[in-house]
Design a protein around this nucleic acid. Structure first.
Lengths: 134, 134
DNA sequence: TATATACCTACTTTGTCAATAGGATTAAAT
DNA sequence: ATTTAATCCTATTGACAAAGTAGGTATATA
């Protein structure tokens, strides 16, 4: 399994905000209730989204979260990558891994490169706009 | 990262055996040396392959391992799944997970189902025969 | 000033990854 | 029969991450 609760909760959080932010800010508490996710844990997830610039936050009464751009501009890939780190299916493809000394003669490298591309292309083609309803 | 050393070592082991079994059995020691993998750890990996019926083993002097069918009949998917378990990208798609109560209205489920299919289809299309050289 | 919200630090529990260690068993070669 | 070379078996370890929990601080609105 490659996508943990962090990535899945983040995606569900953003979808929920997109569907409910019509007027103003959406409080985390409401999302947690609708999505049946622990508030405390969701805080940790959402903090990442704010730090990553995917969400605007407002403190205090009447506060909460809201998207800072239209849903079409949030690709599923970018959301998942933000939470999970690089989606590379094997360690040797992760960014910052100097080329493996065996790569020249590695029988399996092309397979992993192809798999990486298939996954990336698939997730890049969807955005929040494709996932919200009504 | 979704594919651990277990899956990667298993694949490299099988490729190495396929390329070197011309005459008889290939000892683990030789594969470990060629592939620069710890013998002891490789034992653990290979035990799984034998238990899973992907390899024949012969003990004692002159022993080792050999494929029990032609390389075309080993799909990469089946090898990886044997070592890693189900390739499902998210927990709720793993076999034996009764349908999630939210599935009826889940915005993200179709995405995960599609991702699962893309990965499975990709890995199912290659076999050992595509990976061996010479 | 009360209230509702986001923000922050620390801890816990459980499990997996990637090995390592040390031997027991088996089959072939001498 | 004995040595040798291989697979097989059980247990342990250290590091790390996943998935939360606990308790408090800062801030904006009513």
């Amino acid at each position: 399994m490659m996508i943990s609760t962090k990535g899945r909760y983040a995606l569900r959080f953003l979808i929920d905000v997109a569907e409910n932010q019509s007027d103003g800010f959406v409080p985390l508490k409401d999302v947690a209730a609708r999505q049946e996710i622990s508030e405390k844990y969701l805080e940790i997830v959402v903090k990442e989204l704010v730090k990553g610039g995917l969400l605007d936050a407002l403190r205090g009464k009447g506060g909460g979260y809201r998207l800072n751009r239209p849903p079409e501009e949030y690709s599923v890939k970018s959301i998942i990558e933000r939470m999970e780190g690089p989606l590379a299916p094997v360690a040797c493809l992760e960014p910052g891994q100097g080329t493996c000394p065996r790569s020249k003669d590695c029988r399996t490298l092309p397979i992993w490169q192809g798999l990486d591309k298939v996954i990336s292309d698939y997730l890049a083609q969807f955005t929040l706009a494709d996932l919200i309803r009504e």
